[in-house]
Amino acid sequence: MVGGRDFVSHRAVTGRNRRVTMEPNQPMCRRVRENLSAYLDGELKGTARRLIEEHLAECAECRAQLDELKETWRLLDELEEPIVHNDFRREVLALARAEAQAEQIAREGGRRSVLAGLAASAAAAVFVFGLYASSRPLSDPPTPRQREAITYLDLLENVDALLCLDQARELQSLGQSMEASPAAAPAATATKEASGV
């Protein structure tokens, strides 16, 4: 509801007991006409409505204005009311179902995409980790034990040959000693077969 505060306060200023005549009362008429629309819509209550009605009872000009506004509003009834097509509801429901299905498909497609994305991410992670792991010994500085191992790498790689060489030298010295003492010869032959030299 529209409050008639402005209207009421105006009336208070002009005086409650002031008699309104048929003579144009410009400020009052203006105030009333500003509120005629709300009056017609039933939005004025109480004092505001009563003051309008009192003024209308005494002011022919404002009554004419009121009649014109009523007539204008009545003319708007000329617009036809459309008749809703019989299939309207069915069509709306069909469109809604189609949208729901499309959303469902999009959601499922989205889930598949997420799973595929996760699998691809996992594969990529494994690949990257592999690259990292394979490149790490080259990029990180060797530990003291590794440095020591690298220093003696040639030695370690040929340790078997060196052992054989030692054994060969021992056999050679043994042979020399057997030449000097023939009783030790069978034992030296057995040792040579065992070492495969």
């Binding site: 005629l36 709300a38 939005e43 014109e68 506004l69 204008t72 509003w73 708007l76």
Partner: peptide, 16 residues
């Protein structure tokens, strides 16, 4: 509500 009141008053005047 006051804005609606104003809109409808002006609309009625225009339509008239």
């Amino acid at each position: 509500v006051m804005a609606v009141k104003s809109l409808l008053a002006r609309a009625r005047t225009n339509l008239r």
